[in-house]
Amino acid sequence: MKKHFYKYHGAGNDFVLFSEDVFEDMNYDVLVKEIRFLCHRRFGVGADGVLLMKPIYSDNFAFEMVYYNSDGSRGSFCGNGSRCICRTAIELGWVKAGEEFDFLFGGKTYRGFSEDGIRISVNLVDVNDFGDCKEGFLVDTGSPHLILESNETDWKKLRKIAEGIRYSPPFSGNGVNVNFLRNTDKKAVDMVTYERGVEDFTYACGTGAVAAAVFLAEKTNKGGSFLLRSAGGELTVSLERQSLRRYTNVWLTGPAIKVFESDWHFGNSPHVVNLEKAENNSL
């Protein structure tokens, strides 16, 4: 089965995107194998995850978004993925640049907008689930994130800390994304995110940037605009701080770039190589 796909990235957070539900008739085991091959950076296209932009026959919504992590698991909301899917919708003519439009994810409504069709903004749901915990500052921005302040720059040490938290008893079930923030007193805050489902550091994380903005807003007792800088580029988060532990009008903004488009032949890759064996014997 051959299907057309698009490769996009948002600040280095990259995705394979289909403008239809290509997994509709697949059983779960086959779906997981196909996604793992698609996202594999040696045997597939290479990506942090897979996005589906499903047509929806409604005057109120432009499309429905579905997200899968690179390990094949169904993903929670992905901020940079949503910006990439909005860019695709503009390029395919499903929506128009310069006009706001709504789309669905997980039964919730999100809003997209772009003035130029390249720099994409997404309006996320309100954030009201956050606070300090033993491990750090925990906040749910559509995906669960733990925020830690750290000046550590050694990736091996950061990975050890992140994995220790990611697989610790409080989070081992559903997992948590672990974010390290540096220079939190500066205009541009440096950050890096260890993402569950990818089980590695990514070049950027949209919902992680929003979580970092909530942390910074709580630290300064005011909302506003925050600039988050990651390895793949800069993301801007704006939000309004309400009196009752709630953030509204949450917008995530940054570039969404099309890398290329091509076709993927489903059903072929699992027969080409034993992925588990290859990874277990990798150098």
Rank of each mutant, 00 (worst) to 15 (best):
residue 89 A to S: 10
residue 236 T to M: 13
residue 4 H to S: 14
residue 241 R to M: 15
residue 182 R to A: 13
residue 214 V to R: 05
residue 246 R to G: 00
residue 14 D to N: 14
residue 223 G to C: 08
residue 67 Y to S: 04
residue 261 E to H: 07
residue 217 A to Q: 02
residue 141 T to C: 12
residue 17 L to S: 11
residue 187 K to H: 09
residue 151 N to K: 12
residue 92 L to C: 01
residue 64 E to Y: 04
residue 121 S to M: 12
residue 1 M to Y: 08
residue 11 A to H: 00
residue 179 N to R: 03
residue 75 G to T: 00
residue 60 N to T: 03
residue 13 N to V: 06
residue 205 C to W: 04
residue 77 F to Q: 01
residue 107 G to T: 08
residue 141 T to Y: 03
residue 87 R to P: 00
residue 109 T to S: 08
residue 71 D to E: 03
residue 276 E to F: 11
residue 223 G to K: 07
residue 68 Y to I: 01
residue 50 V to D: 06
residue 25 D to T: 15
residue 106 G to I: 06
residue 270 P to S: 08
residue 234 E to M: 11
residue 19 S to C: 14
residue 144 P to L: 14
residue 42 R to V: 05
residue 180 F to D: 07
residue 259 V to C: 12
residue 137 F to A: 10
residue 185 D to H: 12
residue 40 H to F: 02
residue 131 G to D: 11
residue 50 V to T: 10
residue 92 L to K: 14
residue 124 L to F: 15
residue 156 K to V: 11
residue 273 V to F: 09
residue 218 E to R: 10
residue 172 S to T: 11
residue 233 G to C: 07
residue 42 R to H: 15
residue 109 T to G: 00
residue 172 S to I: 14
residue 152 E to K: 02
residue 80 N to C: 03
residue 156 K to W: 00
residue 77 F to N: 00
residue 19 S to T: 15
residue 128 N to E: 14
residue 53 M to T: 01
residue 58 S to H: 10
residue 143 S to N: 12
residue 13 N to A: 05
residue 213 A to K: 03
residue 259 V to I: 15
residue 272 V to C: 07
residue 163 E to K: 13
residue 241 R to W: 00
residue 141 T to M: 05
residue 4 H to C: 04
residue 94 W to M: 14
residue 170 P to V: 07
residue 136 G to K: 09
residue 226 F to N: 03
residue 216 L to D: 06
residue 99 E to R: 12
residue 5 F to Y: 15
residue 53 M to R: 14
residue 106 G to H: 06
residue 237 V to Y: 03
